[in-house]
Computed example of a mutant assay.
Amino acid sequence: MSGTPSSATLAHQRAMSMTRLLDCGMEFADAQALFQRTSAGEEWDEVAESLAQAQLDRAAHAAGAGCHVTAREAQAAAIADLLFAQMAFNHDNARKRALYDRLVGATQQLCEWSEGRMTRVEVPFEQSRLAGWLVRPRARQALGTVLVFGGQSGWGVAYLPIARALAKRGLATLLAEGPGQGETRMRQGVHVDVNVEAAYSQFISFILNDATLGQPGIWGNSVGGLWAARTAAADARIRACCVNGGLAAPTLLPFRTFAEQAAAMLGTDDEDAIRSNFERMSFRPTRDRIACPLLVLHGGADPLVKLEDQQPFLDAAQSADASLKVWEDGEHTIYNHSAERTAFVADWFARSI
């Protein structure tokens, strides 16, 4: 260890801020240790994985002692640590794949300890399958189910804290890994050169094929907000749509991390191909109309998304129940007001679905 953080570490600390770590379920002590140890020269992925291992050991010990609540909580903390360990790599190298496999294995163990409230989901799409995790409320009959997903780097169980909040309100959550994300990309080879809204509609069909899950809503975060809006415009079965920090007309932003993640999602480093695909996926209110209730969230301090970048979603709203919620000091996807944000949106879905 050099005792000085590398430029890569500083980039990781910017992309995975303390507020983001906590938003996605990392325990404060682990988040603090991750920043302290990487600032002292340790590698980001190695520190995060070691923190995960300590939580996995704590979870296994608790389970062996019959302390099932503690086991589940420690396992969830380990999952958050592994999520950010693999996020140190934008392209799908061997190390990222191995860490993601550990993340999947840890999540499968949490499912086994969940008393049936969390299960793995695989949904057919074209010649492949889409991965996800279904989280149910305590009641057998959910009041509805929210399809939740992220964008270029926050996938699946990154939104487990949101699923818990929805469950408290009687709603189920399907934590989706869509095209270009997680296992759907790394193991199934599905990138964002496909019909993305058709892929998310497959998750909607899964929800509607289970009578205990009720009616579907959709909640997209970051670039995922674009796909949520496009899917809501294309699929009349969706009862409510939330867009959190989305870009209606995405383009290559002047940040290395964003560019590398966009390349990995498309499966090519060709910048012209990435720009062309962003153009193909753009949301146009003259063409894409959203009939269901719509909620758009915006952070005034978001360095990636300006309010005008999200205005097209509001322009496309046909429902009288369309609204904008702004946090003036809000970071990207409102990391720094995560508890308030999640409660606000969860209550809105409980009313709207």
Rank of each mutant, 00 (worst) to 15 (best):
D193Y: 06
V196G: 03
V196C: 05
A198H: 06
A199D: 02
Y200Q: 04
S201M: 10
I204Y: 02
I204S: 04
S205C: 13
L208C: 07
L208K: 13
N209I: 00
N209F: 01
D210L: 03
T212V: 05
L213M: 04
G214C: 11
Q215C: 10
Q215G: 00
P216V: 01
G217Y: 13
G220S: 05
G220R: 02
N221W: 13
N221E: 09
G224D: 04
G224W: 01
G224P: 03
G225E: 03
G225Q: 11
W227S: 12
A228K: 04
A228R: 00
A229C: 08
T231A: 02
T231N: 00
A232G: 13
A233N: 00
A233E: 02
A233F: 00
A234V: 05
D235E: 13
R237C: 03
I238P: 01
I238D: 03
I238R: 06
C241K: 08
C241S: 10
C242A: 15
V243M: 12
N244K: 03
G245M: 03
G246M: 10
L247K: 05
L247S: 14
A249C: 12
P250W: 05
P254F: 10
P254C: 13
F255H: 11
F255K: 01
F255W: 14
F258W: 13
E260W: 08
Q261D: 14
A262R: 05
A264Y: 02
G267E: 05
G267R: 03
